[in-house]
Structures are given as structure tokens and as C-alpha cells.
Simulated assay, not measured.
Amino acid sequence: MITFPISSYFLTVHNLFSGNTTYAGALAALVANIVLMGYVIVAFQDDKSEREIDAAAAANEKKKSR
């Protein structure tokens, strides 16, 4: 995940932007934000699935205790 912004900078600074480091840096910052958003989305989905599993386990325990 950390390699995407760094590699996007070095791959585009000479190939796409002809040495303009400002544009390559802006692209690297954009890629870093995309990676961060992806991490947050995955973290929320993982937390949601854990809560659903915990709720199902609690319901099963409640049924067993009756």
C-alpha cells in the first residue's frame, strides 16, 4: 500500500510530466488519499462483519440458555 504513492511519483515524474515534480507530487498525494480511503472502507466493513458475528453468537447463547 505504501509503494503505490511512491511508485506513482517516480514513474510519472519523467515519463508523464517531463520532469515537473509539482504534478508528480500532486499525483502521488492523490494516490495516497485513494489508498487511505480504501483502508478506511475496508476497516469499516471488517468492523461491521465482526459486530454481526458477535450479535449472532449472542443470539445463539440466549437460545441455548432457555
Rank of each mutant, 00 (worst) to 15 (best):
K62N: 14
R66K: 11
S49L: 15
V35D: 00
A43F: 13
A28P: 00
S49W: 12
A59H: 06
Y23L: 08
T22S: 09
F10G: 00
L30N: 09
N33M: 15
T12F: 12
P5S: 00
F10E: 05
M1G: 12
T22N: 08
R51Q: 09
G38R: 06
E61S: 13
A58L: 10
A26K: 11
E52K: 14
P5Q: 01
S8D: 04
I2K: 10
D47Q: 13
A32E: 05
A59N: 04
F10C: 04
A43S: 08
T22D: 07
Y9T: 01
N60R: 15
A56E: 06
F4I: 08
A26N: 12
G25D: 03
V42K: 09
A59G: 02
F44D: 08
H14C: 07
I34S: 04
A58H: 11
V35Y: 04
R51E: 07
S7N: 12
I34E: 05
K63Y: 15
S65N: 10
P5A: 00
A59D: 05
S65E: 10
A43W: 14
K64S: 09
N15E: 06
A28R: 02
S7W: 13
D46L: 11
P5T: 00
A56D: 07
A59V: 07
V40G: 03
K62M: 14
E61W: 14
S65C: 07
T3N: 10
I53P: 01
V31H: 02
H14W: 14
Q45H: 12
H14Q: 10
G38F: 11
I2M: 09
A24P: 00
L30R: 09
E52G: 05
Q45V: 12
E52M: 13
F44E: 07
D46S: 10
F17R: 03
F17E: 00
S65Q: 13
S18P: 02
A58T: 03
T21G: 01
S49M: 13
L27K: 02
N33C: 15
N60V: 14
A28E: 00
Y23R: 03
L16A: 05
T12W: 10
P5W: 04
A58V: 03
H14E: 05
Y23P: 00
N33D: 11
V40M: 13
